[in-house]
Design a protein around this nucleic acid. Sequence first.
DNA 1: GAGAATTCTTGACTCGTTCAAGAAAACAGG
DNA 2: CCTGTTTTCTTGAACGAGTCAAGAATTCTC
Lengths: 157, 157
Amino acid sequence: MPPAPDFPQMLRESGLRVTRQRLAVLDVLVELAHADTDSVITAVRRELPDVSHQAVYDSLRILTDAGLARRIQPNGSVARYEARVGDNHHHLVCRACGAIADVDCAVGHVPCLTASDAQGYAVDEAEVIFWGLCPSCAAAPPTTSHANQTSTTAVHA
Amino acid sequence: MPPAPDFPQMLRESGLRVTRQRLAVLDVLVELAHADTDSVITAVRRELPDVSHQAVYDSLRILTDAGLARRIQPNGSVARYEARVGDNHHHLVCRACGAIADVDCAVGHVPCLTASDAQGYAVDEAEVIFWGLCPSCAAAPPTTSHANQTSTTAVHA
DNA sequence: GAGAATTCTTGACTCGTTCAAGAAAACAGG
DNA sequence: CCTGTTTTCTTGAACGAGTCAAGAATTCTC
């Protein structure tokens, strides 16, 4: 864990104004991994009870555009966000419960950017999602729904 | 490509009933690459003018569940579908116009399933999205907003 | 064909997300 | 520290992809 990221500094370096709302959103993104928008709103309101959902939506978009956050959205899921420090990690997603875990880039160096035939595309990022079952869902019979995650959809065997 | 896939047979093998609507949806998925739901509805209605959108939604979900179609949904985009024949190809997505192109699996054999540390997950598929700019968007100057920017359209390979 | 089960039609509805206008902050200059 | 300008936030409504539900139509089995 990097001790204390200087969020105001980071915002200014991106040409963004430093607001309480944005700092709170950044705090939440560091605290919660892969939080969906609603979770972010709820968490931010523990610190700033009166933030509007719109401010959170705006912040998330702006932070994402600035590269301070990353947005991920596995197939049927709602948008989720994570603080991003420029590393290139990927995600494990459980088909049953929607849980998300981080994985380091598969091969270590920069293999991810190598498409076999880029067809003229200027590729700058490779996003990898490993689909499967998380340990608890793999062990549990399909009927058991121990909802450890707030994923709304994810009704699958 | 297999010249004439036997869709009725494929449906029956998956334990699904053979309906005109489902056959039409399958036809469309073969014809259109990476079509969004609305495009599928429109295309299906050229053959069956009175299909309900609901029937198309149902068909797409059922075909996806049965493995006869694949659903892809790059980050901010709406759901898109493609006929799937069991191969494991990936996608190039243009950040600017949303165009999608196919790429063969990066290394050829089954490297994609190898996460560096699967953390107990039972991985059965790796989905890779290469983000970048398609040839025409890469050539066009960004200041001149020349085309559809919000990536709602642009279905082409 | 007739019966049972699935699927389609119709139409309303949910919910994540965006839009728009005015109020409130944040920053720059004095 | 105060003022003006610009950006951001609040408020509240709107949008739209996707879903739900009830009844009619179709498909499959016998």
